[in-house]
């Protein structure tokens, strides 16, 4: 990581990706500068989650490249990226539902952090998780599950954090609470790429907003200006 400070932490260059022979990403260019929050927005099926899958290594692009801190990491398996400081909280609940809270946190240590540190950060930030440390994660409320998922992102102190649909199926107040925490993580210097359908909430924390349509990033800019165009995109009004 001896690149100059201006080098983006995560960069996708001309990424194309396909399921079978149906291409869903047609050349995605996306840059996450250091210590910034980038919101990736767009209608259903625009390719946001696929973009994230490529970025975290779960999916290999058919063309283009992925760079982390200036290094080409295209084709590097996801577990290696995870150990190098690229943490992903996937869509839905990024937790193991049949493991207890504590066991979930123990899985976070696979990225190379000690369990002590993980528990300290997780329980410190979310005291409710400490109360439930021996509860099976799948039996907690949706908000608590998402907190657990986010706790992992916090605890391993990543260089880049990828968040997919943090808000899905959660009550608005919980979503706000979670994004408050995302904002704090960002403040501590982590670069974050957030995928969201709930446009307005995330625009509050984002430095940069990118709109994705038709498997391409169509628009990148200041969140407030982008917001205007979004409402039009969603309800077609």
């Amino acid at each position: 990581m001896t690149q100059d400070a201006a080098a983006p932490l995560l960069e996708l260059r001309g990424v194309r990706a396909a399921y079978g022979s149906i291409e869903v990403l047609h050349g995605v260019d996306l840059v996450v500068p250091p210590a910034s929050v980038v919101a990736l927005l767009g209608p259903n099926g625009a390719g946001k989650t696929t973009t994230l899958s490529v970025a975290c290594g779960l999916m290999s692009p058919t063309a283009g490249s992925v760079h982390v801190a200036g290094r080409d990491v295209t084709g590097v398996p996801p577990e290696v990226l995870a150990q190098k400081g690229l943490t992903t909280i996937p869509e839905g609940r990024g937790i193991f539902p049949n493991l207890t809270v504590r066991e979930n946190l123990q899985m976070a240590t696979l990225a190379g952090v000690g369990i002590k540190q993980v528990e300290e950060v997780a329980y410190g930030r979310f005291p409710r998780l400490a109360e439930r440390r021996n509860q099976i994660a799948g039996t907690m409320s949706g908000g608590e599950q998402q907190m657990l998922a986010l706790a992992r992102g916090l605890a391993v102190d990543p260089a880049v954090l990828l968040l997919d649909e943090l808000s899905m199926g959660l009550a608005p107040l919980v979503v706000e609470e979670l994004y408050g925490i995302v904002a704090q993580i960002a403040k501590e210097g982590t670069s974050i790429l957030v995928v969201e359908q709930f446009a307005r909430t995330v625009l509050g924390v984002a430095d940069i907003a990118a709109i994705m349509v038709h498997g391409q990033v169509r628009r990148v800019g200041d969140p407030t200006t982008v917001e205007q165009e979004l409402s039009a995109a969603y309800l077609g009004g």
Binding site: E79, A82, T88, P90, G94, F96, M107
Partner: peptide, 26 residues
């Protein structure tokens, strides 16, 4: 299965294989 990271990872792989990878597991 409850005390070692390896054993917990064996259970975790059943729950969600790719999430285990995203955690850094194999």
């Amino acid at each position: 299965f409850t005390r070692t990271r390896l054993g917990i990872a064996m259970r975790a792989v059943v729950d969600d294989r790719s999430l285990l990878q995203l955690n850094g597991g194999r």
